[in-house]
Computed example of a mutant assay.
Amino acid sequence: MPLRVVIAEDSLLVREGVTAVLRQPGDIEVVAGVGDLPALLAAVAEHAPDVVVTDVRMPPTSTDEGVRAAGRLRTTHPGVGVVVLSQYAETGYATALLAGGSASRAYLLKERVSNPGQLVAAVREVARGGSVIDPAVVEVLVSANGRTRVSPLADLTSRERDVLAEIAQGKSNAGVAAALFLSERAVEKHINTLFTKLGLAAEPDTNRRVKAVLMHLADGVDPG
């Protein structure tokens, strides 16, 4: 069965461009194209898509509707993947998008629409529960955290890396514990230690968790 996709973008030209790109491979069906947040939520309720591709800013306020839609769909339609498109490499949007977990979420720059393979790959990845963060956003993040050529994850133990990998899949502490056959207390200890090693100890818990996930996704990306 083809993947069913709803596109939300207030620019007709961009919306049509994204539609054309996604239809090209033949295994993706665009079931609706809308231009604002209320219409997006209505389209999801009507068409039950596998994935939503949405602009980060659109009416009614043109601020962060795409991110807010992703957050709402995590509750109302948890099986729907979301790809957020933006003109800006702003880590704030990516952080907000992943605040509830990275599973089935992607954040890409709109320039990727000109590279059909990247956009299509992101749609397929979130449909199967994965996550994608644009390399340009990752570079901004690691620069802001003073990353050098040495991975910030280099000091983590193998167990701490395992814990972080599970967190990056959107799992709670209980979920991590079950996956790694650890107690929740042990998981909490590993998480606090890796936060400290990554220089995130002073951040509020939610932000630390999301930033750690972004650093995990950035591992192996050369900022040069």
Rank of each mutant, 00 (worst) to 15 (best):
A174P: 06
L200V: 06
V52L: 07
G146C: 07
G66H: 03
V44P: 09
G17M: 08
E125V: 02
V83R: 05
A179P: 06
V52C: 03
L198Q: 10
G71L: 13
Q169R: 15
F181Q: 13
G130T: 05
N207A: 12
T157E: 05
N145E: 10
L40Q: 00
G26E: 11
A43D: 08
P116R: 01
G100T: 11
D36M: 06
A201W: 10
L141M: 12
P59I: 01
P49A: 07
A178I: 02
G220T: 08
A144E: 15
T193G: 12
A94S: 03
V53E: 00
N207S: 13
V82C: 00
E139Q: 13
P152K: 11
E9Q: 09
D36I: 01
A179K: 14
R68Y: 01
G220W: 11
V123E: 05
V120A: 03
A48G: 09
D162E: 15
Y93M: 08
P2Q: 11
V176K: 10
D205F: 14
A212K: 14
S11W: 12
V30K: 05
P38F: 03
R74N: 02
A42S: 14
A121S: 13
L37K: 01
T95W: 05
V123R: 11
L156M: 12
R208S: 14
E90A: 11
G66C: 00
M58C: 06
A43I: 10
A45Y: 10
P152N: 06
G66M: 02
L198M: 09
N173I: 07
V137D: 02
L182S: 04
E65P: 07
A121I: 04
A177P: 08
R68C: 01
T193D: 15
T148F: 09
R68A: 01
E65N: 08
A136E: 14
Y107G: 00
E9K: 08
S183N: 12
V213T: 15
E46M: 12
L198S: 09
A20T: 14
V221D: 08
T76N: 07
M58K: 08
L13G: 05
L108T: 03
R23L: 14
V176S: 02
P204F: 07
